[in-house]
Design a protein around this nucleic acid. Structure first.
Length: 584
RNA sequence: GCGCCUGUAGCUCAACGGACAGAGCACCGGCCUUCUAAGCCGGGGGUUGCAGGUUCGAUUCCUGCCAGGCGCGCCA
């Protein structure tokens, strides 16, 4: 039985509650502000009214009635709180036992039971730069995908590429005017972006360019074979460029089908909206009114423009319906920033269609938009973006320099690495800095791009977590060298010191942190947790020596504790797409 | 004008409605002949934008202001 439930039941008994109320008591349990006060705290405020007694008095009486057992050492009243102290050794045995039982699954739950969650993220626009801002959707989405998967959901990773729209008119316009085949072969996506930016700039000075681009896109929509061939070629080149970045980051999608792939469904879906009486004509365009559904004044969702062309919103509708038919998801999550109104309109329009056509499933209610803060300090349209690949390169190079400096200052502490190992470590550390930076604040807060902040390697950073992991691994290497390689992973220090106990408590909190991250669609929860875990480990590491030849029993027990910490940190880092390193 | 989001230490950010609002960076002072000092320990630093309300208790929930960001039918 989980420790929290055990404590809750003991409190239930003390309060003369029915055992069924243990869940509600467990919900009320918190951690005291200081570990010296206890391991669990039960606030008595809520009881004051029904018992007509002052909270401190309730706490005192309750504490006196809590019966110590194998797990509970004692209960102490502190003002209005009942503070519970655990038997450290017994609690540690349980925590280490749970971790050792299935290390790779430690922290996971089967909450999802195989239900499908569709995660739509990254979704870069073809022929536009893949800049640092795209890292947010890509990273948050990839993290959520791993977290949902860890929680027992079947995850469909969907990269709904922006591969259709007037921007292609710009690229094709530029290609026809300045296009150079040799350049295209040599520089691929970089060159395409350059062309797009050049055409876009020209259109700012000359509106006629925009008209030409629009016209070229219209020809593409009408199936002009020459234009379609160009589109096909540009799409493939762009995707190949994106794929390099995804592979570098270790991210793969189940589908790379973009807007173009749903084009053939759009007319049918629009027809359904019309037939169901949900769509109406307005100012020459075809729209769906959604103000009534949303309970506020909001512009309608436009399905067709006055010139007859379908909109991206119509494609989104068609795509969502197609998505449901294919996957039968229990949740459909769009990791997209700054489109709250669009998604509100989209889900509302689908809700109206569902009602009008009397669908069996109310799946539009399971659609949600996971938004995130804006990355300041960059512009995309004018081509002043900071390219993600450049940031990754700079991060990697800086990681390498830092290691060189540190190893030069303290050669004995750093193992000699081969060139391949050094390259791997540098790349991994650089990525860790970037990826962790992205989840070091809650997703909705805006972040400003700043090289020195983003590429920080000390303090609350990704490299700090990797460093902690590498330290743990260093201990195991040393243990093997000392002939202590085969230790019992469930061994427990007889009388745990405060730092050891703090580490155990941190380990215990891992599953709850992952669950909270999943429920709140907030990878930051995992990041925050891992920093606390690493801090607890480093405090322990600096205070205590794990390997002591004179004391093999303590060495075994501490090795078991470090193993549990390494498993937990490793699992957590993997959820964030950060590589746990064995050496740095 | 309407909508969404955000205001917390000099900077970047935390804090299930709970005890004294915490970290990192920067600054100051300590700790490497022993498992990686990308680390650890300590110090200074705050009217949580403002004013009300709900509550035993509000950084957290509600209302109104103030400030900032983003969006608001023919771009996607």
């Amino acid at each position: 039985m989980p420790i929290t439930s055990h404590v809750a039941q003991a409190l239930c008994a003390a309060l003369e509650y029915a055992p069924e109320r243990a869940g509600e008591v467990a919900q009320a349990l918190t951690a005291p502000p200081s570990p010296a006060l206890g391991d669990f705290a039960f606030p008595c405020f809520a009881l004051a009214k029904q018992l007509r007694m002052a909270p401190p008095k309730i706490a005192a009486e309750c504490a006196a009635r809590v019966r110590p057992d194998a797990l509970i050492a004692r209960a102490v009243a502190a003002g209005p709180y009942v503070n519970i102290f655990l038997e450290r050794a017994e609690a540690t045995r349980r925590v280490l036992g749970a971790i050792a039982a299935d290390p790779l699954r430690w922290g996971s739950r089967n909450e999802g039971g195989g239900q499908v969650v569709v995660l739509d993220f990254s979704a870069p626009n073809i022929a536009k730069p893949f800049h640092f801002g795209h890292l947010r959707s890509t990273n948050i989405g990839a993290d959520l995908a791993r977290i949902f998967s860890f929680m027992g959901y079947r995850v469909v990773r969907k990269n709904y590429l922006g591969d259709w729209g007037t921007q292609f008119g710009f690229v094709i316009y530029a290609w026809q005017k300045w296009g150079d085949t040799a350049e295209l072969q040599a520089r691929a996506i970089d060159y395409l972006v350059e062309l797009y930016v050049r055409a876009y700039r020209e259109s700012e000075a000359d509106p006629a360019v925009r008209e030409q681009a629009r016209h070229l896109f219209l020809r593409l929509e009408q199936g002009d074979p020459q234009i379609a061939a160009l589109w096909q070629q540009f799409r493939e080149l762009s995707l190949a460029g994106f794929m390099q970045t995804y592979e570098r980051l270790g991210i793969a999608f189940d589908s790379y089908e973009g807007e173009a792939a749903v084009n053939h469904l759009v007319d049918t879906v629009i027809g359904r909206f019309v037939k169901a009486g949900v769509a109406e004509e307005s100012q020459g365009a075809l729209v769906v009114q959604v103000s009534a559904v949303l309970g506020r004044e909001i512009a309608p969702l436009m399905l067709r423009k006055s010139d007859g062309a379908s909109t991206y919103a119509a494609r989104d509708c068609a795509e969502a319906i197609d998505r449901w038919e294919r996957y039968g998801f229990s949740a459909n999550i769009y990791v997209v920033s700054r489109q709250e109104d669009h998604f509100a309109q989209l889900f509302a329009a689908l809700t109206r269609l569902a009602a009008a056509e009397q669908w069996d499933s109310h799946w539009p209610a399971t659609c949600e938009n996971v938004s995130f803060g804006y990355v300041r300090g960059m512009s995309t349209r004018k081509g002043e973006a900071v390219w993600l690949e450049d940031v990754l390169d700079e991060a990697r190079d800086r990681a390498r320099r830092v290691r060189e400096e540190k190893s030069a200052a303290n050669p004995r502490a750093f193992p000699v690495l081969s060139e391949a190992e050094l390259a791997y470590v540098s790349e991994s550390v650089g990525q860790a800095a970037l990826l962790y930076f992205d989840v070091s604040s809650r997703r909705l807060s805006d972040v400003s791009f700043d090289w020195d902040t983003v590429l920080q390697f000390e303090g609350n950073t990704g490299p700090y977590l990797q460093y902690s992991h590498a330290r743990m691994c260093g201990i195991f290497r040393r243990a093997a060298a000392e002939g202590l390689g085969d230790f019992d992973v469930r061994a427990v220090v007889a009388c745990l010191a405060d730092e050891e106990w703090a580490l155990v408590l941190a380990l215990r909190a891992f599953p709850a942190a992952v669950a909270a991250a999943c429920a709140g669609r907030e990878p930051h929860e995992v990041a925050r947790y891992l920093y606390e875990l690493a801090s607890a480990f480093n405090a322990f590491y600096n205070k205590h020596t794990v390997i002591d030849r004179a004391d093999p029993a303590t060495s075994h027990a501490r090795l078991a504790l470090v193993r549990a910490a390494q498993v937990t940190l490793g699992n957590g880092l993997k959820l964030l797409g950060i590589r746990p390193l064995e050496t740095m």
